[in-house]
Design a protein around this nucleic acid. Sequence first.
DNA 1: CAACTAAGACTGTCTTAGCTA
DNA 2: TAGCTAAGACAGTCTTAGTTG
Lengths: 104, 104
Amino acid sequence: MSEVDQQWGAMLKQARLAAGLSQKSLGIQAGIDEFVASTRINRYELGVHRPDLLTVRKLAKVLDVPVAFFFADGDDDIASLLISFHQAKASTRREVQKLLDKEK
Amino acid sequence: MSEVDQQWGAMLKQARLAAGLSQKSLGIQAGIDEFVASTRINRYELGVHRPDLLTVRKLAKVLDVPVAFFFADGDDDIASLLISFHQAKASTRREVQKLLDKEK
DNA sequence: CAACTAAGACTGTCTTAGCTA
DNA sequence: TAGCTAAGACAGTCTTAGTTG
Protein backbone atom coordinates (compact mmCIF):
# COMPACT_ATOMS: atom_id res chain seq x y z
CA MET A 1 0.00 0.00 0.00
CA SER A 2 2.39 2.67 -1.22
CA GLU A 3 1.71 6.34 -1.79
CA VAL A 4 1.66 5.92 -5.59
CA ASP A 5 -1.02 3.25 -5.34
CA GLN A 6 -3.18 5.51 -3.18
CA GLN A 7 -2.80 8.27 -5.77
CA TRP A 8 -3.87 5.86 -8.50
CA GLY A 9 -6.91 4.82 -6.47
CA ALA A 10 -7.89 8.44 -5.94
CA MET A 11 -8.02 8.94 -9.72
CA LEU A 12 -10.26 5.90 -10.08
CA LYS A 13 -12.56 7.16 -7.34
CA GLN A 14 -12.69 10.61 -8.91
CA ALA A 15 -13.75 9.19 -12.28
CA ARG A 16 -16.25 6.82 -10.66
CA LEU A 17 -17.95 9.58 -8.67
CA ALA A 18 -18.02 11.79 -11.78
CA ALA A 19 -19.87 8.97 -13.52
CA GLY A 20 -22.24 8.60 -10.56
CA LEU A 21 -21.59 4.90 -10.05
CA SER A 22 -21.20 2.76 -6.92
CA GLN A 23 -18.09 0.63 -6.44
CA LYS A 24 -20.17 -2.47 -7.09
CA SER A 25 -21.90 -1.29 -10.26
CA LEU A 26 -18.62 -0.01 -11.72
CA GLY A 27 -17.06 -3.41 -11.19
CA ILE A 28 -20.01 -5.27 -12.69
CA GLN A 29 -20.08 -3.00 -15.75
CA ALA A 30 -16.35 -3.65 -16.17
CA GLY A 31 -17.07 -7.35 -16.39
CA ILE A 32 -16.12 -8.37 -12.83
CA ASP A 33 -18.23 -11.07 -11.17
CA GLU A 34 -21.05 -9.44 -9.20
CA PHE A 35 -20.07 -11.23 -5.97
CA VAL A 36 -16.56 -9.77 -5.91
CA ALA A 37 -17.01 -6.50 -7.81
CA SER A 38 -17.48 -4.32 -4.73
CA THR A 39 -14.49 -5.78 -2.89
CA ARG A 40 -12.11 -5.46 -5.80
CA ILE A 41 -13.01 -1.88 -6.73
CA ASN A 42 -12.76 -0.94 -3.07
CA ARG A 43 -9.26 -2.37 -2.78
CA TYR A 44 -8.22 -0.52 -5.94
CA GLU A 45 -9.53 2.85 -4.77
CA LEU A 46 -7.81 2.61 -1.41
CA GLY A 47 -4.53 1.53 -2.98
CA VAL A 48 -4.43 -1.85 -1.23
CA HIS A 49 -4.43 -3.87 -4.45
CA ARG A 50 -3.60 -3.00 -8.03
CA PRO A 51 -5.65 -4.16 -11.05
CA ASP A 52 -4.01 -5.67 -14.13
CA LEU A 53 -3.94 -3.52 -17.26
CA LEU A 54 -6.78 -5.36 -18.96
CA THR A 55 -9.03 -4.51 -16.01
CA VAL A 56 -7.77 -0.92 -16.06
CA ARG A 57 -8.72 -0.69 -19.73
CA LYS A 58 -12.24 -1.98 -19.00
CA LEU A 59 -12.66 0.48 -16.11
CA ALA A 60 -11.54 3.35 -18.35
CA LYS A 61 -14.08 2.34 -20.98
CA VAL A 62 -16.96 2.23 -18.49
CA LEU A 63 -15.94 5.58 -17.00
CA ASP A 64 -15.31 7.14 -20.43
CA VAL A 65 -11.81 8.36 -19.66
CA PRO A 66 -8.53 7.53 -21.41
CA VAL A 67 -6.49 4.85 -19.61
CA ALA A 68 -3.65 7.36 -19.21
CA PHE A 69 -5.89 9.53 -17.01
CA PHE A 70 -5.44 7.14 -14.09
CA PHE A 71 -1.68 7.64 -14.35
CA ALA A 72 -1.50 11.44 -14.25
CA ASP A 73 0.71 10.84 -11.20
CA GLY A 74 -0.26 13.89 -9.20
CA ASP A 75 -0.07 16.27 -12.16
CA ASP A 76 -3.48 17.99 -12.35
CA ASP A 77 -2.60 19.69 -15.65
CA ILE A 78 -2.01 16.33 -17.32
CA ALA A 79 -5.17 14.87 -15.78
CA SER A 80 -7.41 17.64 -17.11
CA LEU A 81 -5.51 17.71 -20.40
CA LEU A 82 -6.34 14.05 -20.97
CA ILE A 83 -10.01 14.46 -20.08
CA SER A 84 -10.46 17.56 -22.22
CA PHE A 85 -8.60 16.06 -25.17
CA HIS A 86 -10.69 12.91 -24.85
CA GLN A 87 -13.93 14.90 -25.02
CA ALA A 88 -12.78 17.39 -27.66
CA LYS A 89 -13.97 17.43 -31.27
CA ALA A 90 -11.56 16.20 -33.95
CA SER A 91 -11.04 19.75 -35.20
CA THR A 92 -10.06 21.00 -31.76
CA ARG A 93 -7.67 18.08 -31.32
CA ARG A 94 -5.92 18.99 -34.55
CA GLU A 95 -5.58 22.60 -33.38
CA VAL A 96 -4.00 21.41 -30.14
CA GLN A 97 -1.57 19.19 -32.01
CA LYS A 98 -0.65 22.04 -34.36
CA LEU A 99 0.01 24.34 -31.41
CA LEU A 100 2.31 21.82 -29.77
CA ASP A 101 4.10 20.97 -33.02
CA LYS A 102 4.91 24.62 -33.73
CA GLU A 103 7.27 24.78 -30.76
CA LYS A 104 9.46 22.01 -32.16
CA MET B 1 1.80 -12.08 -20.81
CA SER B 2 -1.27 -10.38 -22.19
CA GLU B 3 -1.55 -8.08 -25.17
CA VAL B 4 -1.93 -4.98 -22.98
CA ASP B 5 1.30 -5.77 -21.16
CA GLN B 6 3.16 -6.13 -24.45
CA GLN B 7 1.81 -2.76 -25.51
CA TRP B 8 3.03 -1.24 -22.27
CA GLY B 9 6.47 -2.75 -22.77
CA ALA B 10 6.65 -1.36 -26.28
CA MET B 11 6.14 2.15 -24.90
CA LEU B 12 8.95 1.61 -22.41
CA LYS B 13 11.26 0.34 -25.13
CA GLN B 14 10.37 3.29 -27.37
CA ALA B 15 11.24 5.79 -24.65
CA ARG B 16 14.42 3.91 -23.71
CA LEU B 17 15.71 3.83 -27.30
CA ALA B 18 14.84 7.51 -27.71
CA ALA B 19 17.04 8.17 -24.69
CA GLY B 20 19.80 6.01 -26.12
CA LEU B 21 20.10 3.74 -23.09
CA SER B 22 20.67 -0.01 -22.71
CA GLN B 23 18.20 -2.09 -20.68
CA LYS B 24 20.84 -2.44 -17.97
CA SER B 25 21.78 1.23 -17.68
CA LEU B 26 18.14 2.30 -17.64
CA GLY B 27 17.49 -0.05 -14.75
CA ILE B 28 20.54 1.09 -12.81
CA GLN B 29 19.66 4.78 -13.29
CA ALA B 30 16.16 3.98 -12.01
CA GLY B 31 17.68 2.65 -8.81
CA ILE B 32 17.50 -1.08 -9.55
CA ASP B 33 20.39 -3.24 -8.31
CA GLU B 34 22.98 -3.56 -11.05
CA PHE B 35 22.93 -7.39 -10.97
CA VAL B 36 19.20 -7.59 -11.76
CA ALA B 37 18.62 -4.36 -13.72
CA SER B 38 18.99 -5.92 -17.15
CA THR B 39 16.71 -8.86 -16.38
CA ARG B 40 13.94 -6.77 -14.93
CA ILE B 41 13.85 -4.13 -17.69
CA ASN B 42 13.90 -6.93 -20.24
CA ARG B 43 10.91 -8.64 -18.67
CA TYR B 44 9.03 -5.33 -18.58
CA GLU B 45 9.68 -4.51 -22.23
CA LEU B 46 8.54 -7.91 -23.44
CA GLY B 47 5.41 -7.79 -21.30
CA VAL B 48 6.34 -10.85 -19.23
CA HIS B 49 6.36 -8.98 -15.91
CA ARG B 50 4.84 -5.71 -14.81
CA PRO B 51 6.68 -3.15 -12.62
CA ASP B 52 5.03 -1.55 -9.59
CA LEU B 53 4.01 2.09 -9.91
CA LEU B 54 6.96 3.38 -7.90
CA THR B 55 9.34 1.75 -10.38
CA VAL B 56 7.29 3.12 -13.27
CA ARG B 57 7.64 6.60 -11.82
CA LYS B 58 11.41 6.21 -11.54
CA LEU B 59 11.68 4.93 -15.11
CA ALA B 60 9.62 7.87 -16.35
CA LYS B 61 11.93 10.28 -14.53
CA VAL B 62 15.08 8.77 -16.06
CA LEU B 63 13.54 8.74 -19.54
CA ASP B 64 12.09 12.26 -19.12
CA VAL B 65 8.54 11.33 -20.08
CA PRO B 66 5.33 11.71 -18.07
CA VAL B 67 4.23 8.47 -16.36
CA ALA B 68 0.97 8.60 -18.33
CA PHE B 69 2.94 8.22 -21.59
CA PHE B 70 3.46 4.51 -20.88
CA PHE B 71 -0.31 4.08 -20.67
CA ALA B 72 -1.34 5.68 -23.98
CA ASP B 73 -2.94 2.27 -24.62
CA GLY B 74 -2.42 2.15 -28.38
CA ASP B 75 -3.56 5.73 -28.96
CA ASP B 76 -0.74 7.46 -30.83
CA ASP B 77 -2.42 10.86 -30.56
CA ILE B 78 -2.42 10.65 -26.77
CA ALA B 79 1.17 9.39 -26.71
CA SER B 80 2.50 12.31 -28.75
CA LEU B 81 0.20 14.74 -26.93
CA LEU B 82 1.78 13.76 -23.61
CA ILE B 83 5.34 14.02 -24.91
CA SER B 84 4.75 17.38 -26.60
CA PHE B 85 2.91 18.82 -23.61
CA HIS B 86 5.69 17.61 -21.35
CA GLN B 87 8.32 19.40 -23.42
CA ALA B 88 6.28 22.53 -24.11
CA LYS B 89 6.92 25.92 -22.56
CA ALA B 90 4.51 27.11 -19.85
CA SER B 91 3.02 29.68 -22.23
CA THR B 92 2.26 27.04 -24.86
CA ARG B 93 0.68 24.80 -22.23
CA ARG B 94 -1.64 27.60 -21.19
CA GLU B 95 -2.66 28.14 -24.82
CA VAL B 96 -3.45 24.46 -25.18
CA GLN B 97 -5.54 24.48 -22.01
CA LYS B 98 -7.40 27.59 -23.19
CA LEU B 99 -8.16 25.94 -26.51
CA LEU B 100 -9.56 22.85 -24.84
CA ASP B 101 -11.55 24.84 -22.27
CA LYS B 102 -13.28 26.93 -24.95
CA GLU B 103 -15.18 23.92 -26.21
CA LYS B 104 -16.86 23.37 -22.87
C1' DC C 1 28.46 -6.17 -24.30
C1' DA C 2 23.43 -6.28 -25.07
C1' DA C 3 19.33 -8.84 -25.11
C1' DC C 4 17.12 -12.50 -23.37
C1' DT C 5 15.33 -16.82 -20.51
C1' DA C 6 13.95 -20.73 -16.86
C1' DA C 7 12.79 -21.76 -12.27
C1' DG C 8 12.54 -21.56 -7.33
C1' DA C 9 11.90 -17.92 -3.85
C1' DC C 10 9.29 -14.44 -2.78
C1' DT C 11 5.46 -10.95 -2.97
C1' DG C 12 1.52 -9.61 -4.70
C1' DT C 13 -3.78 -10.11 -5.86
C1' DC C 14 -8.43 -12.57 -5.65
C1' DT C 15 -12.16 -14.90 -3.47
C1' DT C 16 -14.74 -15.95 0.51
C1' DA C 17 -17.07 -14.53 4.30
C1' DG C 18 -18.02 -11.39 6.79
C1' DC C 19 -18.63 -6.24 9.52
C1' DT C 20 -20.17 -1.22 9.78
C1' DA C 21 -22.71 3.28 8.56
C1' DT D 1 -27.48 -0.23 -0.02
C1' DA D 2 -22.77 1.38 0.00
C1' DG D 3 -18.27 1.18 1.72
C1' DC D 4 -15.04 -1.50 3.77
C1' DT D 5 -11.88 -5.51 5.78
C1' DA D 6 -9.14 -10.13 7.14
C1' DA D 7 -7.11 -14.27 5.61
C1' DG D 8 -6.26 -18.39 2.98
C1' DA D 9 -6.01 -19.61 -1.92
C1' DC D 10 -4.04 -18.34 -5.79
C1' DA D 11 -1.29 -15.76 -9.32
C1' DG D 12 2.00 -12.69 -10.00
C1' DT D 13 7.05 -10.73 -9.76
C1' DC D 14 12.12 -10.97 -8.39
C1' DT D 15 16.56 -13.05 -7.96
C1' DT D 16 19.82 -16.38 -9.41
C1' DA D 17 22.27 -18.43 -12.81
C1' DG D 18 22.85 -18.88 -16.83
C1' DT D 19 22.45 -18.90 -22.78
C1' DT D 20 22.43 -16.50 -27.19
C1' DG D 21 23.53 -12.83 -30.84
